[in-house]
């Protein structure tokens, strides 16, 4: 017999495995958020370890793996560079290319977080069926994976930054809080799509279309200042409906030009990040008790 006292001693640190549980049919809704968050935080190591293991299994840690992670977005940047140059009648230089890479690489981070997140719950299979833990760890771990895939593109960007002769200013540091907001935003997306994928297994096949449209609607291939006069009315609309307009726009502006974005951009970006995170994770948490019976 494990003595009751030894069990009780562990209890405070492990609320999740308390010695008395009653399971009843749950009515839709949320579990106690505070204890959920505590458990989530306590198991953050899992999200890190799962993402590390996945990166290792995908050979991301090898030289060629790293090279591919850089080469793939770089080639895409090259393709878009040519495309935009042809469409706009040429004349775009390294300055544009640097901005393009900054925006595109980070856009692919968001897209990767979303796609990995969508597959995260379904991919958890047996672990979900045989272990009780806060499921939100799965999409969050997917975001970490996407982040570590994005990281090697940072030095590449700086190569083009130098090449284009872009300025080095302390104002560039404003890109960091924007990056942070982008990560928070992506966590919400990953959770949302991770949960949706359980109900509609075709969610992930619909994502590429969404991503394509989203890319075109974001200031990555074009800049707000590029917009022809007859399109000027579109910018304010995109600014409100497209989260990445402010998030990516602010990030690239700070990183490439060393300009601190307008206060309004900060506010909109923050609102989107918080909204996405809150809605995505709450939706996920409200559904997650049902995941095991639907896998």
């Amino acid at each position: 017999m494990s003595s009751e006292s030894s069990v009780a001693a562990r209890e405070s640190e492990n609320e999740f495995t308390t010695t008395h549980h009653v399971y009843e049919p749950h009515t839709a809704g949320l579990p106690p958020i505070r204890s959920y968050a505590t458990e989530l935080w306590r198991r953050r190591e899992f999200a890190a370890a799962a993402s590390q293991a996945n990166l290792r299994a995908a050979n991301t840690m090898t030289v060629f793996g790293q090279l591919w992670m850089v080469l793939n977005p770089l080639l895409l940047a090259g393709v878009y560079f040519l495309l935009v140059n042809i469409l706009s009648g040429g004349g775009r230089g390294m300055d544009f290319f640097a901005r393009l890479t900054a925006g595109l690489f980070t856009f692919y981070f968001v897209q990767g977080a979303m796609t990995n997140g969508a597959g995260s719950v379904i991919g958890g299979g047996k672990l979900l069926l045989n272990t009780a833990f806060p499921r939100l760890l799965m999409p969050f771990s997917a975001v970490r994976t996407a982040f570590f895939r994005w990281l090697p593109t940072v030095p590449i960007y700086f190569v083009f930054h130098i090449w284009a002769g872009n300025p080095w200013k302390w104002q560039m540091l404003a890109a960091i809080p924007f990056l942070f907001l982008i990560v928070i935003f992506s966590m919400g997306l990953a959770a949302l799509f991770g949960a949706l994928q359980v109900y509609f297994r075709d969610t992930s096949s619909f994502l590429p279309y969404l991503n394509r449209i989203w890319l075109y609607a974001s200031p990555v291939l074009w800049q707000i200042t590029d917009l022809p006069a007859r399109m000027a009315g579109v910018a304010p609309i995109l600014e409100t409906v497209n989260p990445l307009f402010s998030l990516l726009g602010g990030y690239t502006e700070a990183l490439t030009q060393g300009i601190i974005p307008d206060f309004k951009v900060w506010v909109i970006a923050t609102i989107w990040a918080v909204a996405s995170f809150t809605i995505g994770s709450l939706f996920f948490i409200s559904r997650e008790r049902e995941f095991a019976v639907r896998l």
Partner: peptide
């Protein structure tokens, strides 16, 4: 891990 659709489960112990 699996929530009941109906009924009740009581567990005392880790």
């Amino acid at each position: 891990i699996l929530p009941p659709n109906e009924g009740r489960i009581e567990v005392n112990g880790r």
